[in-house]
Simulated scan of single mutants.
Amino acid sequence: MTGDAELMATTERVGLPATLLVAISPAEVSLLIAAPADRSHQMAVSAVYGPRLRASGVAR
């Protein structure tokens, strides 16, 4: 548990963005999911956008 305390002591809080994020339309999401030629890549993109996650959040 001491590792957790040390980690929390060195962790910095990140504030919320000052601007609203741009959302894409359902039609654009469909195009985005269909864009990869490989079916496994389509499934990965679909898994990211299914629960409404953003790619930038997943890439971190």
Rank of each mutant, 00 (worst) to 15 (best):
A5F: 08
A5P: 01
A5Q: 11
A5C: 10
A5V: 08
E6C: 06
E6Y: 11
E6H: 05
E6S: 12
E6P: 05
E6V: 07
L7I: 10
L7D: 07
L7A: 10
M8I: 10
M8R: 12
M8D: 13
M8T: 12
A9W: 04
A9M: 07
A9R: 06
A9L: 00
A9D: 04
A9P: 01
A9K: 04
T10Q: 13
T10D: 15
T10A: 11
T11E: 05
T11D: 08
T11H: 02
T11M: 04
T11R: 03
E12L: 04
E12D: 08
E12R: 05
E12N: 04
R13I: 13
R13K: 09
R13G: 11
R13H: 09
R13N: 09
R13C: 14
V14I: 08
V14N: 11
V14K: 03
V14H: 02
G15I: 07
G15L: 06
G15Q: 05
G15F: 06
G15T: 11
G15R: 07
L16W: 14
L16V: 10
L16N: 09
P17G: 02
P17V: 00
P17S: 02
P17T: 03
P17N: 03
A18L: 15
A18N: 09
A18H: 07
A18I: 06
T19H: 14
T19G: 12
T19V: 15
L20C: 14
L20D: 14
L21T: 12
L21M: 13
L21G: 14
L21A: 13
L21R: 14
L21W: 10
L21C: 08
V22I: 13
V22C: 15
V22Q: 14
V22E: 15
V22R: 14
A23T: 10
A23D: 10
A23Y: 06
I24A: 01
I24F: 08
I24Q: 09
S25P: 08
S25F: 01
S25R: 07
S25V: 02
S25N: 05
P26I: 04
P26H: 03
P26K: 00
P26M: 03
P26F: 01
A27D: 06
A27I: 06
A27T: 04
A27N: 04
E28R: 04
E28L: 06
E28F: 10
V29R: 06
V29I: 05
S30N: 09
S30E: 15
S30H: 10
S30R: 09
L31D: 10
L31I: 12
L31Q: 13
L31K: 08
L31M: 15
L32T: 05
L32W: 02
L32I: 00
L32Y: 03
L32R: 00
I33C: 05
I33L: 04
A34C: 03
A34H: 01
A34M: 04
A34D: 02
